[in-house]
Write a protein that binds this DNA or RNA. Structure first.
Length: 426
RNA sequence: GACCCCAUCGUCUAGCUAGGUUAGGACACAAGCUUUUCAAGCUUGCAGCGCGGGUUCAAAUCCCGCUGGGGUCGCCA
């Protein structure tokens, strides 16, 4: 039975590197019909927080992952102590104060990594390893080895930063007489600057990406593309389809630089592909949060607005920002565009346009275009001479959906009101 | 510094296991089409095998060295 594990430490949020490690573990388990174990490495009681654990679990579920078993190392201190004592009795470890330390014999340790092949270490440079700390808690490596063995983990899939830990851990397996699992060390994810991924270079928490309006499908899709490829020049792929194609052997060895641009592109592709109704559904929490809607929102109207923005939105947060004028009157205004387009010579046309629109019994896309074009023709202006000023007056922006669609969605009342106010405010 | 890992367009990658490709795709960038704007879409373009040695008829692919990047050296995980 293939058994893998993801072992986060609840001392912080789930970051995208950890999420990808979890993802590859999960995909491998699913691809092999195996099991995925979630192990909470909360041996550091000072830094471990329940709220972080909640955040990690929420993020994992949000990304579409689940697990077959879950353990907490803080529940298992007795087990660690018991085995450490055994090593002590066998003379394989010794005490230093209250700490229990494993003797490291000089030898050559070979590990076979599923991604990198054979890696050889000389333990001469490895110091004796602390197993149990003075405070009675196990060290990371000891607890990790104990659990991987006792939980019958067949494959340890983790970040490349653990390669150097592996020989130490193998020494522990040997001392304990446990079977050594197979290892696969994933390449790291680097920040845009080529260095370590950090808050400085952008968001690192999965929950931050959620807040910014990235879709889980897009994030998961992007994450799996970092170091792996489904082949056939395919960029977009569902988790389900990726599982079918997944193979550890095809994972890259080289670290990958995280590109927010590409993530945004993928996200925009997913938004574009979703139905209007689906995009409305995922947007609602954001609209609520921004107080753009309350419980009595008009779904038809939302669908209308989403339709206009579906193909011009990288993230849901961008959607809210760009379509703010549909929901509030104090929408953001591009002052540069305002100065450029809202010139006094448009005053008369605005007045007439407002007047004529107000007179319409029905105001839809067709009518708005008819009225607008008639006015343009009558005044001798070109369409674009009035299109831009009107857009700026109604939306505060000089970019956006088609003017007539936008006016119809905004509604007669708001259109008239904003056209009239356009020159009053100055 | 010691030890370990890695190296194809600016970025993510296919190709490398079993040497022979006009080195393919995607993001970004540029241009064009379309258009009331911005997007989206379509078309086109730009751009890469880090360097040096081997092995071979033939090397992105195999070997060695160099350089460069990354990781680890905690009673953190």
């Amino acid at each position: 039975m293939i058994r893998v594990r993801f072992a986060p430490s609840p001392t912080g949020y789930l970051h995208i590197g950890g999420a990808r490690t979890a993802l590859f573990n999960w995909m491998y388990a699913k691809a092999q019909g195996g099991q995925c174990i979630l192990r909470i490495e909360d041996t550091d009681r000072e830094r471990s927080k329940e709220e972080f654990l909640e955040e990690i679990l929420t993020s994992m579920k949000w990304l579409g992952m689940d697990w077959d078993e879950m353990y907490r190392q803080s529940d298992r201190f007795d087990i660690y102590r018991q085995y450490a004592t055994k090593l002590l009795e066998e003379g394989k470890a010794y005490k230093d104060g209250a700490a229990i330390i494993l003797k490291i014999e000089k030898q050559e340790v070979k590990i076979y990594d599923l991604i990198r092949g054979e890696i050889v270490f000389d333990t001469e440079t490895i110091k004796d390893q602390v197993l149990m700390k003075s405070d009675g808690s196990p060290t990371y490596s000891f607890a990790c080895v104990m659990d991987d063995a006792l939980m019958e983990i067949s494959h340890v899939i983790r970040g490349e930063d653990h390669i150097s830990n592996t020989p130490k851990q193998i020494m522990i397996y040997q001392a304990l007489g446990f079977k050594v699992p197979k290892f696969a060390h994933l390449p790291l994810i680097l920040g845009e600057d080529g260095g370590r991924l950090s808050k400085r270079t952008g968001a690192v928490a999965v929950s931050d990406y959620k807040k910014q309006g990235f879709l889980p499908q897009a994030l998961v899709n992007y994450l799996m593309l970092l170091g792996w490829s489904p082949g056939n020049n395919q960029e977009m792929i569902t988790l389900k389809a990726a599982v079918k194609k997944f193979s550890i052997k095809k994972i890259n060895k080289a670290a990958a630089v995280f590109s927010l641009e590409k993530l945004k592109w993928l996200n925009s592709q997913y938004i574009k592909q979703m139905s209007v109704s689906e995009v409305v559904n995922v947007s609602i929490p954001f609209l609520r949060e921004a107080k753009y809607i309350d419980d009595n929102y008009d779904r038809k109207r939302l669908e209308n607005i989403v339709q206009l923005y579906k193909s011009r939105t990288p993230t849901l947060a961008d959607f809210l920002e760009r379509a703010d004028y549909f929901f509030v009157d104090d929408f953001s205004v591009d002052e540069g565009a305002k100065d450029k387009h809202l010139t006094e010579d448009k005053k008369e046309a605005f007045q007439k346009l407002g007047q004529q629109i107000e007179e319409q019994a029905r105001f839809d896309v067709k009518v708005s275009e008819q009225v607008f074009r008639a006015l343009v023709e009558e005044s001798g202006m070109s369409a674009s001479e009035l299109v831009h000023p009107v857009r700026v007056a109604l939306t505060g922006k000089d970019v956006g959906p088609g003017l007539f669609e936008m006016m119809a969605a905004l509604g007669k009342e708001k259109v008239v009101q904003r056209l009239r106010a356009a020159f009053l405010k100055r």
